[in-house]
Design a protein around this nucleic acid. Structure first.
Lengths: 196, 196
DNA sequence: GTCTATAGATAGATAGAC
DNA sequence: GTCTATCTATCTATAGAC
């Protein structure tokens, strides 16, 4: 099979999702892909080369996930639960935290993270536009993006059992505000999506 | 001088702020504190012991910084620039990203991150309360906290030259919404605080 | 109690065999 | 082109000298 590279990327992505940036090691990925570490370096000479390749695949997946998450909601507020369900999926959080760290360390990876961020913001802006939020500025979209990132990081780090509800409550408040309604509804709707 | 521990903590914090979680190694910290790595392990037997100690000091500093940032503003919106200036300070971001990662890997560090998050949210809630935002729910405070975290991570990873303005614009929009005014002011006020 | 030499483990990269 | 043995660097931890 010629697709060694494909297998390696898949293995790398799985490792990144499960173990995060510090666990993203050549030996572990090689073992997962069924080859030796020293062989892996033939295809991807350096750890960063591999991370870059894995990052590209991860970005495609993330953007597809964003599309799936934002599609088909009757109102802005109705999307809160769906977004919350994604936000508390720690595997996703580990991936973009790894890209963020790599971007801080290596200029080469910065570009990749920007692609991801810009892609998400563009999709969120389109989503908001569909509900009448003026697209004159990107601010509401950037707000929703940064808020989701922050909620994901906080949930990953605190690991609270009621994380999904908390995130949904905050997102509900944010979406209500963006939609122009009253901001302080104290009773978030029950969330959909899979439990943690 | 008996305060070897104090020196070590300071050195550890400095390393964490400059190099992040992956750069937080015993040899580097020991060199900075002016002793051997093998000596450092006498005071802090394991890397996690050290990170925990450094984390406690870091939390105190962060909470003090939050107080300083939120104090003395004439209106909610006026605080946007000050918050943005903190958000783009990458040294801070590296510290809490390290704590977040450690919290994901080690239950022991989770508690520490919760302390930090809860402390910030409480302070933000008090700040908002001072401007008439009802304190019935913590949602607005949690929103502002998560938003700041997300903006910080995105700015760290993308490293855009106009990061401060972008963050200030989003924060301005968020604070306006929380204050109940129109949300889509497309012209963020010039930001104060130090440049990047 | 204070500090150091040394061991043990694992990561990353290279040269070279098939 | 495909794959492996091996080397170097680096980190963490322990046993033990002063």
């Amino acid at each position: 099979m010629q697709d060694r590279r494909h297998d390696i990327i898949q293995a790398g992505l799985a490792v990144l999702r499960e173990h995060g940036y510090t666990g993203f090691t050549q030996p572990r990925i090689a073992a997962r892909a069924g080859l030796r570490q020293s062989h892996l370096t033939y295809y991807y000479p350096t750890r960063l080369d591999l991370l870059e390749a894995v990052g590209r695949t991860a970005i495609e997946r993330q953007l597809a996930a964003v599309d799936a998450t934002l599609g088909g909601h009757a109102s802005l507020e109705a999307a809160a639960g769906a977004i919350a369900a994604v936000v508390v999926r720690h595997e996703n959080t580990r991936v973009f935290m790894a890209l963020a760290q790599a971007g801080d360390e290596e200029p080469r990876l910065r570009e990749l993270f920007r692609e991801l961020a810009d892609g998400i913001v563009a999709r969120v802006a389109r989503f908001l536009g569909g509900f009448g939020v003026p697209a004159v500025s990107e601010e509401p979209a950037r707000l929703l993006h940064a808020l989701s990132v922050g909620l994901a990081v906080v949930d990953l780090a605190t690991g609270r059992p009621d994380g999904t509800q908390r995130a949904a409550g905050v997102l509900q408040a944010a979406l209500s505000m963006i939609a122009g309604k009253d901001a302080h509804s104290a009773t978030p709707a029950p969330i959909e999506g899979e439990p943690r």
